[in-house]
Design a protein around this nucleic acid. Structure first.
Lengths: 330, 330
DNA sequence: AGGAGCGGTGCAAACGTTTGTATGATATTT
DNA sequence: AAATATCATACAAACGTTTGCACCGCTCCT
């Protein structure tokens, strides 16, 4: 392996000058700089990242922490973040917490030990408050996305959850559904409480009283969506706004089981715009979160050491599950 | 930050002894070792990974290189690998190539610069031969999985593609389909050529002549599957074994467009057992690859510095798209 | 009794980079 | 002309760990 010392010897100068030349430090003569770059190229020099990291006290790696990577939302978000980080000379190290708090703490701590340059982070469902984050992470720059703790420092990038849920619920109302429940997520998490607020506001703005008995919290998985949908049906619902797509899928399972026709007799809108929502029968309407853009924004927020909250608009994708009487499509 | 020097001073010994004690080196007295561990714990010592990496010339990070992370197969494989690597004290850095050769070379090179402890690797479609790998990667331990170059050193972990395709095709034959084509993948890639061989063998073992005009290569995406299925229909096919699930989905699109009833008049089996295959109407039969196990095996192969090929069995999941006359399910 | 073997520890040199400070040579000011 | 500023480079000390080698004291052998 060729080092800066080798280059220095070859040129009759010292490693420090080589280092500065390579770093683009203005305190080295242009002529010297060119000679160094030429020699480095010719000799096949490649900076020893580990030595550089040790000396500078931090690495060129950014940690991306997500609950799971096999979600359309998170995997696309990661791709978006990678595209920005890569251009800026950073590498991403992707970590899954599998929705487990212990794993989340562990992961943050490991990233901290690796002195990563920053962490892009979406916390797991099990994390009810942020008290574990800073102790595990130390003073490493933090950017939160999607599921954020508002009391933590650093930038936050979130979808327009309130507006998205508002739009989805309004859409159900305009489609003529009258008793609209919601498969709410975990209400201690901001994204889900925002969606619930949006749902509620949409009802109230349309003169429909908000009925807490039609709110089914903690249902974002297929199983819990299935169970909650049965309860919703028993409560007389004829539509559901679901804060997740997997729970919307579970609801569809329940409706099929009961032989209820969707969208004729029951409407559903999910959230996240997972790939599969377009494939089910009926296909599932869903409020999409533009994850790729969120990933890019999160990466930019890190690079620019941004503070404050960036909100990414959401988009309603109307499909069969809410397309009553075919009034929305074709 | 507390260092081994701090611990050494606190105990009146030298950093070298502390280092050896922490590493579990047998050349340090048991009593000393306990004292060091106790002091380390008490003082909140945490090894500086960057210094350790620099000195040892390698890191505790393992690179996992896949074409895309938003595939059920790859994301589950990653989870499997992570579970093993984590227990062994390694961290995974996940890299996507997005099926682009340039990106693949870049990624391997970056991992090499980071002196990762090893690389678990599945190459992209664009890579027609292995000539770029070793130059970019240097002498870092390599484990290939799924899409492997047989001429590269190191362990390989692959699904039983031949057997899987054989089973799927046999299943179609037993279902009474008579003119069975195949949506083959990129035949310069081992997994796909193996699947084609399995398909062919199954036909021949059942007295059906292999007809090259029913082989539609390069179709593993939804679009290419759609196009190829139209061609297959024109060629008189009444069934397709597809080497991918997305192409099977595309085939379903084409069949719906033509109003052909599946599975009554046409049978399909895909490959990979993507989540969505169970959700379409009709649901898509698929040969699954047990990605989680493959990930575990790949990680173990790295840890044990294994050589040679490990084959993971595949499983046929029979769903509606090939369940003619309801003979297989219910 | 003298030397060999061994268990436990210390010494010091790495690993390759970065960076504060010193140095020497010009250029600029008074 | 002397003092001062400016520029480009050199010097050397880090960063914290690991590890070959040296060393010391002890036991065991012949």
């Amino acid at each position: 392996m060729v080092t800066i010392t080798d280059i220095a010897e070859a040129l009759g100068i010292t490693p420090s000058t080589v280092s500065r030349a390579l770093a683009g430090n203005p305190r080295v003569r242009e002529e010297t700089r060119r000679a160094v770059l030429e020699a480095a190229e010719r000799m096949g020099y490649e900076r020893n990242i580990m030595a550089s990291n040790l000396r500078r006290g931090r690495s060129d790696i950014v940690g991306i922490v997500v609950p799971r990577i096999n979600r359309e939302f998170f995997s696309n978000l990661i791709s978006g973040a990678e595209s920005i980080l890569g251009d800026a000379g950073y590498r991403a190290i992707i970590c899954q917490t599998h929705e487990e708090l212990d794993s989340e703490i562990q992961v943050l701590h490991t990233l901290s030990l690796h002195r990563v340059a920053g962490v892009l982070f979406s916390h797991c469902i099990d994390a009810t408050d942020s008290s574990h984050v800073l102790p595990a992470l130390g003073n490493i720059p933090l950017v939160q996305f999607d599921r954020v703790f508002s009391d933590l420092p650093g930038a936050k990038v979130v979808g327009a959850n309130f507006e998205g849920a508002y739009e989805a619920t309004t859409h159900l109302i305009l489609s003529g559904y009258r008793r609209i429940g919601t498969l709410a997520g975990y209400l201690n998490i901001g994204v889900y409480s925002d969606r619930l607020r949006g749902y509620r506001k949409a009802l109230e703005d349309n003169g429909i009283p908000y009925d807490e008995s039609l709110v089914f919290p903690d249902s974002i998985f297929r199983e819990s969506g299935y169970t909650a949908c049965h309860l919703a049906l028993d409560a007389g619902c004829d539509a559901l706004y679901s804060a997740g797509d997997f729970s919307a899928l579970g609801a569809l399972d329940a409706l099929k089981e009961r032989g209820i026709s969707v969208p004729d007799d029951f409407g559903i809108v999910g959230t996240a715009n997972e790939f599969f929502t377009a494939l089910t029968s009926p296909s599932i309407s869903s409020v999409g979160q533009r994850p790729y853009d969120m990933g890019r924004e999160a990466a930019l927020a890190f690079l620019e050491r941004r503070e404050g909250v960036t909100v990414i608009p959401m988009e309603l994708h109307i499909r069969q599950s809410s397309n009553r009487n075919n009034i929305w499509l074709k």
